[in-house]
Design a binder for these strands. Structure first.
Lengths: 128, 128
DNA sequence: CTTTACATTCCAGTCACTGGAGACTTTATA
DNA sequence: TATAAAGTCTCCAGTGACTGGAATGTAAAG
């Protein structure tokens, strides 16, 4: 199938699918006459896989690793679990950061009158 | 003072301070002989302000707005509060996303044996 | 006078795409 | 069959907020 069909089936944009070909993540065959990329169902399955992994916040390089594990008959689930645990840990870090950020900001908002006068504890805090 | 002094006082890197000059956020005077950037205490205060706002996850463009409010004698705290509430809302969105991501991933991890066999519910989920 | 430290500009790279130009191929319509 | 429209190709540039590095120039210390 052509690239737009593969894109539709995998829920990715044509641009993104072409990008994944460029970076050698999913390299389809080529139609010799037209030069068009020609995707198989297997290629689409890989695109799907990557799309999901990306939505799970895995980076492109992590997706590459997961994809090669996915295609490896002799993989051990241990390796996959390790990657996933590391990802959870990094998400936890971000969660912590954003939580404390949120708390500080909402504290500041509560202190701010939000009226027409210039006095503003938010700006005061930022300039300390 | 020279750029490295300003950087040290504001807790930013020299590269970053120069970058803020390039994008016309904090534009210092210049020493005519040497061409070196020459920072005042006021410039450093602005750099400080921006550094803090960036740590609060405000974008460069938002920092620009906050900075102009900061320097505006006739500002109303209402405007600052509005920006801050919008920022909180966007942080809340990210928090929601990351929370559900985390939950899904840790669910998958709990289902995965993590042993030497290839069977892996994490990869199964990603390929669905 | 030389070494060293600091400063300058400019270019490239990061990450994961996205947009657009210009050219080619295929498909649909008149 | 001619033409128009849709799809595809490659290549280049831009995003955000810096960061790294090269080549060059200036200032301070020994």
């Amino acid at each position: 199938m052509n690239i737009s069909e593969a894109a539709k089936l995998s829920g990715l944009s044509v641009k993104t699918v072409r990008y994944y070909a460029d970076i050698k993540m999913v390299e389809p065959a080529r139609n010799i006459q037209s030069g068009y990329r020609s995707y198989t169902n297997d290629d689409v399955a890989k695109l799907n896989f990557i799309g999901k992994a990306r939505r799970f916040n895995f980076s492109i390089e992590e997706c590459r690793e997961l994809l090669s594990l996915y295609q490896d008959e002799n993989r051990s689930s241990k390796e996959v679990k390790k990657l996933t645990l590391a990802k959870i840990a990094s998400i936890d870090e971000k969660l912590k950061e954003f939580h404390s950020l949120r708390d500080e900001l909402s504290h500041l908002v509560n202190c701010c009158n939000g009226d027409d006068r210039p006095s503003c504890p938010i700006l005061d805090e930022l300039s300390k």
